[in-house]
Amino acid sequence: MAEAPPRRLGLGPPPGDAPRAELVALTAVQSEQGEAGGGGSPRRLGLLGSPLPPGAPLPGPGSGSGSACGQRSSAAHKRYRRLQNWVYNVLERPRGWAFVYHVFIFLLVFSCLVLSVLSTIQEHQELANECLLILEFVMIVVFGLEYIVRVWSAGCCCRYRGWQGRFRFARKPFCVIDFIVFVASVAVIAAGTQGNIFATSALRSMRFLQILRMVRMDRRGGTWKLLGSVVYAHSKELITAWYIGFLVLIFASFLVYLAEKDANSDFSSYADSLWWGTITLTTIGYGDKTPHTWLGRVLAAGFALLGISFFALPAGILGSGFALKVQEQHRQKHFEKRRMPAANLIQAAWRLYSTDMSRAYLTATWYYYDSILPSFRELALLFEHVQRARNGGLRPLEVRRAPVPDGAPSRYPPVATCHRPGSTSFCPGESSRMGIKDRIRMGSSQRRTGPSKQHLAPPTMPTSPSSEQVGEATSPTKVQKSWSFNDRTRFRASLRLKPRTSAEDAPSEEVA
């Protein structure tokens, strides 16, 4: 009796068929016929556990003709996506030579605008209408194809895939403007070719909807975003200037109206006075309405000098805001240009540092100066060695804690006790272990408590650290204090090793 083939788990290929790579489910599931010992083939499952149809090819690079078809379809799909992405970037994010197409579109729109203006002049109306009709045909074809291509290429973005995504893309403001202008152009052409009475009025009214094509030149909205950011950044200043200017306008108009309503027919109503105030304070000055009385002229002159300053403030605020924003954008561009080279330089330096163990090129690091100058660790070890030599091999803490019996001779020589300023008595072995921070803190506390006492003391002649007598400086308080830590004499004296002298005989010792 033939044995059933062993159940295979995992992703390994079956024996005897090495080139074939078959994806098997996580659990080997066989058909009921196979479990019962029949000759049925096992049921194939996909990666998600769903059964595959009987005629479906197995996924994998070596699955025969199905694999070749899959490779061809995958390559075609990649080319399709690449083309779609390229078209989308050309239309929505132009760079380099892609601006040539947008310059061509701008020339078409500008020519249409010029011809629309010439069509309103009686001398050039006939020729402009003929040229404009031909140009409209060209623009309908160009913009119609462009609109379709834009909607198709938007599928390269995830949020615009599918018919719902394309509809979302078509609802964008600039796409809506394109659609309105396209419909208006078709209506103008249809009305112009019919030759009816309505054609002339339709051409004159709907052609100027094509002015909206100038708005579509900035599809990404960079200028509007820049203007919005400047207004938002200086909103408080703008609101303040406009508010005060509006108050000056209504008060000036009302007072001039009261002064001129009886003697001047131009100011017969408050609305006429508001019109005069707006034209005057905005420095336009049509001259259609002028005050005639001396009181009205004085009020107009005073409020004009006051109001023009507030009406001119928004222009200066926006101008300075634009300058600052442009400078910030230039700085951001320079930062973006330098970020990648800086990151590459840091990575290269780290690779060199991690692979080169000698690091002989590091001549400006802490390790280099640590090898030249005595390190703080060596100074600490030197302090501890000196203290243990004086205390008979014991550390200062051990000397303080060691009990001394009554009447027993002390094995240590008597030492002079010292007192730290602002604290109780402490171990004499710690007097010379006072660090730089303690010395600086002690000097600052003395300056806070009594700076007036220092200038009363007789001035001391500054001497070099080499000429100081070591026996005289029994305490860190003898170090000359200065008002600034930048004094080199104080810094050098604080680094010197001060020996400890006994109370009975204080021989001067120098520590090399």
Rank of each mutant, 00 (worst) to 15 (best):
F303L: 07
E328G: 11
R150G: 09
E260V: 14
A300V: 01
S119C: 13
L255P: 07
I317M: 11
I244T: 01
T293R: 04
V100F: 01
E146A: 04
Q329P: 15
G192A: 02
Y270N: 12
K261R: 07
A28D: 13
L318I: 11
E336Q: 15
K337R: 06
G155V: 05
I279L: 04
Q84H: 01
Y232D: 02
I317S: 15
N264D: 09
A241P: 00
Y257S: 02
F322C: 00
R220L: 07
E237A: 09
E336A: 02
L318V: 14
A154T: 04
A154G: 04
K261Q: 13
N264H: 06
G221D: 02
A233P: 11
W276C: 02
I211F: 03
A199P: 02
E237D: 06
D272Y: 14
T278K: 09
I317N: 09
E336K: 08
P341Q: 15
D272A: 06
H334R: 10
D266Y: 04
M139K: 06
H234D: 01
V117E: 10
G277R: 02
W163G: 00
R338L: 12
N344Y: 10
V256A: 09
Y160S: 01
G319A: 15
G165S: 01
Q332H: 02
L226M: 00
F322S: 00
P94S: 14
I279S: 08
A187D: 14
F198S: 03
Y88D: 14
E146V: 08
G287A: 07
I250T: 11
A312T: 15
I284S: 14
S320P: 05
P94R: 01
P314T: 01
S153T: 04
P314R: 08
I284N: 12
K325N: 01
V149D: 13
T293K: 14
S320F: 15
S265F: 08
L247P: 01
L313R: 14
Y270S: 03
D178N: 02
Q329K: 11
N344H: 05
T283P: 08
G155E: 03
S268F: 04
L83R: 15
Q332L: 06
G221R: 03
V176F: 08
L227Q: 00
M1V: 02
R150Q: 07
K236N: 06
T278P: 00
Q327L: 02
S309Y: 05
V256F: 09
K337Q: 13
L227R: 14
V142D: 10
S235T: 00
H234P: 01
V109D: 01
L226V: 00
L48P: 07
I284M: 10
L249R: 10
F322Y: 03
I308L: 03
F267C: 10
I244N: 09
R338Q: 12
I284L: 10
L281V: 03
E336V: 06
M1L: 07
T282I: 03
A342V: 12
Q329H: 14
A233E: 08
R331Q: 07
P51T: 01
Y270C: 11
F303V: 05
H330Q: 05
R207S: 10
V256I: 10
E328A: 03
N264Y: 13
Y270D: 13
F335S: 01
G96V: 13
L274R: 02
A312V: 11
A323T: 15
A323P: 14
F311V: 07
V103D: 09
G321A: 13
T282P: 06
L107S: 03
S273P: 04
L295R: 05
F110L: 01
R338W: 01
T293S: 04
P314H: 12
G307R: 03
S320A: 12
F254L: 15
I211N: 00
T290P: 11
R150P: 05
S320Y: 15
G222V: 13
R161P: 04
K261E: 15
I279V: 06
Y257D: 06
R339W: 10
R93P: 09
E237V: 11
P94T: 00
F169I: 03
L227P: 00
Y88C: 06
V151G: 14
E92A: 14
A343P: 13
E237Q: 07
P314L: 14
W152S: 09
L91R: 11
P291Q: 08
H234L: 00
H102D: 09
R207L: 14
L313P: 05
V215E: 01
V151D: 13
R213L: 00
E237G: 01
T283S: 12
T280K: 13
T223N: 04
V248L: 12
L324V: 15
A190D: 00
I284T: 02
R331P: 11
T240I: 00
G316A: 09
R339S: 02
F267I: 13
F267L: 07
L47F: 12
F169S: 06
N264K: 07
E237K: 13
V114M: 08
Q84P: 10
L249P: 03
T278R: 13
I244V: 03
L299R: 08
R207C: 11
Y270H: 03
T282S: 01
F322I: 00
L274H: 12
T283A: 05
A241V: 03
L212R: 00
S205R: 12
W224S: 06
F169C: 15
L249F: 03
V141E: 10
L295P: 07
F267S: 08
L91P: 09
V326A: 13
R72S: 11
T282A: 09
R168P: 07
E260A: 08
R204L: 08
D272H: 09
L108R: 06
V87D: 01
W275S: 11
N196I: 00
P341R: 15
A342T: 14
G302R: 03
W152G: 06
L227M: 11
R339G: 09
L295Q: 13
R166G: 12
A259D: 04
I250S: 13
V230E: 01
F335C: 14
D262Y: 11
V256G: 05
M214K: 01
K325R: 15
S153Y: 13
G316V: 11
A301D: 08
K333T: 02
A300P: 05
G285C: 09
E260G: 10
R95P: 14
T283I: 14
V186E: 03
G285A: 11
V90L: 09
I189L: 09
S273L: 11
A304T: 06
W163S: 01
G321D: 14
G316R: 04
N344I: 10
Q122L: 05
S229T: 07
L306P: 05
L255R: 00
K337E: 07
Y101N: 03
G296A: 15
A241G: 02
I279T: 13
Y286N: 12
F246S: 11
T290R: 05
G319R: 15
W242R: 13
Y101C: 01
L324Q: 15
H330Y: 05
G319D: 15
G165R: 10
F310C: 05
R207G: 12
S253A: 04
L238Q: 00
K289N: 05
K289E: 12
L209R: 01
K333M: 04
F198C: 02
G287R: 05
W275L: 07
F322V: 00
G192V: 07
E146Q: 00
Y243C: 00
A312D: 07
G165D: 04
H102R: 12
Y286F: 10
H330N: 10
G144R: 02
I239N: 05
E136K: 00
G38W: 07
D178G: 00
Q210R: 00
S309F: 03
V100D: 09
C175W: 02
W152R: 09
A300D: 09
A342E: 09
G222D: 06
G307A: 04
Y286C: 06
S50C: 13
A259G: 06
D288Y: 12
D266V: 15
L83Q: 15
Y147H: 07
S265C: 01
R213P: 00
G307S: 08
S268C: 04
D272N: 12
M217R: 00
G307D: 09
